[in-house]
Simulated scan of single mutants.
Amino acid sequence: MVEIDRVMCEMASRRPVFCSEADFQHELAMELRARDPHRQIRLEYPLGNYLRGAIDLLLLGKRRFALELKYLCKGFVADVNGERFTLRQQSAHDIRRHDVCKDVARMEAFVGRTGHDAAVLVLSNDPAYWQPRRRGGTVDAAFDIADARELAGTLQWGDKAAQER
């Protein structure tokens, strides 16, 4: 099993910023491989016939471990250890929260179909994702991903959400 808290803390001292989700995915895979050189790791592993899409990071072994990653960014420009990082402001918090919840559902389906383990790891520099909401009743209230929030049941857009969602 992977102690993701420890891995992320150690990575943060070396790589406090990533330029993209793909950069984060690659660096995490390299870190996990460095910890266990014999570990088989696959990136963008197809889920197959029963689910659409691909798993960001799949750790192979007696029990497989699927890890879906999200890198939710607020605008940020800085030089870190001699490297320039320019993160664009990602708007549409409602859509991004929904995407995280969709990934949770996909990983639950993966676990249910395969009996293996899975998780969704969200990395963000935007407190709007982890802090409690300032107002309730928003169209995306069901998709709130603030710290300590437990997702359960059927999550749906609020009544005032656009029909195309």
Rank of each mutant, 00 (worst) to 15 (best):
residue 55 I to D: 10
residue 159 D to L: 12
residue 139 V to K: 09
residue 26 H to K: 07
residue 138 T to H: 01
residue 67 L to T: 06
residue 150 E to T: 15
residue 126 D to I: 03
residue 159 D to H: 11
residue 107 M to H: 01
residue 103 D to L: 02
residue 161 A to R: 08
residue 142 A to N: 06
residue 41 I to R: 11
residue 124 S to C: 15
residue 102 K to L: 12
residue 133 R to N: 12
residue 137 G to T: 05
residue 109 A to G: 04
residue 60 L to G: 14
residue 112 G to C: 08
residue 72 L to E: 14
residue 69 L to Q: 09
residue 125 N to W: 05
residue 10 E to P: 01
residue 41 I to C: 09
residue 60 L to A: 11
residue 109 A to N: 12
residue 84 R to I: 01
residue 110 F to E: 08
residue 127 P to V: 06
residue 12 A to M: 13
residue 163 Q to F: 06
residue 145 I to G: 04
residue 140 D to Y: 01
residue 146 A to T: 15
residue 63 R to L: 12
residue 48 G to D: 08
residue 38 H to K: 11
residue 85 F to D: 06
residue 140 D to F: 00
residue 133 R to P: 06
residue 161 A to Q: 03
residue 88 R to P: 02
residue 76 F to Q: 13
residue 25 Q to D: 07
residue 158 G to A: 03
residue 32 L to A: 04
residue 47 L to T: 12
residue 163 Q to Y: 07
residue 17 V to K: 00
residue 4 I to F: 12
residue 117 D to N: 10
residue 65 F to Q: 14
residue 151 L to W: 13
residue 6 R to Y: 00
residue 71 Y to S: 10
residue 34 A to Q: 11
residue 5 D to P: 00
residue 137 G to M: 04
residue 61 G to Y: 05
residue 77 V to M: 03
residue 47 L to N: 15
residue 82 G to E: 09
residue 12 A to Q: 12
residue 11 M to D: 11
residue 154 T to F: 00
residue 162 A to Y: 00
residue 144 D to I: 11
residue 27 E to W: 03
residue 47 L to W: 02
residue 88 R to Y: 06
residue 79 D to H: 08
residue 2 V to Q: 12
residue 20 S to V: 08
residue 163 Q to S: 14
residue 40 Q to G: 13
residue 57 L to Y: 06
residue 61 G to M: 05
residue 125 N to I: 06
residue 47 L to D: 03
residue 7 V to D: 07
residue 10 E to T: 06
residue 17 V to W: 00
residue 60 L to W: 05
residue 77 V to Q: 14
residue 32 L to Y: 07
residue 80 V to C: 10
residue 74 K to S: 11
residue 3 E to S: 11
residue 108 E to Y: 02
residue 79 D to I: 09
residue 80 V to P: 04
residue 10 E to C: 08
residue 120 V to A: 05
residue 107 M to I: 07
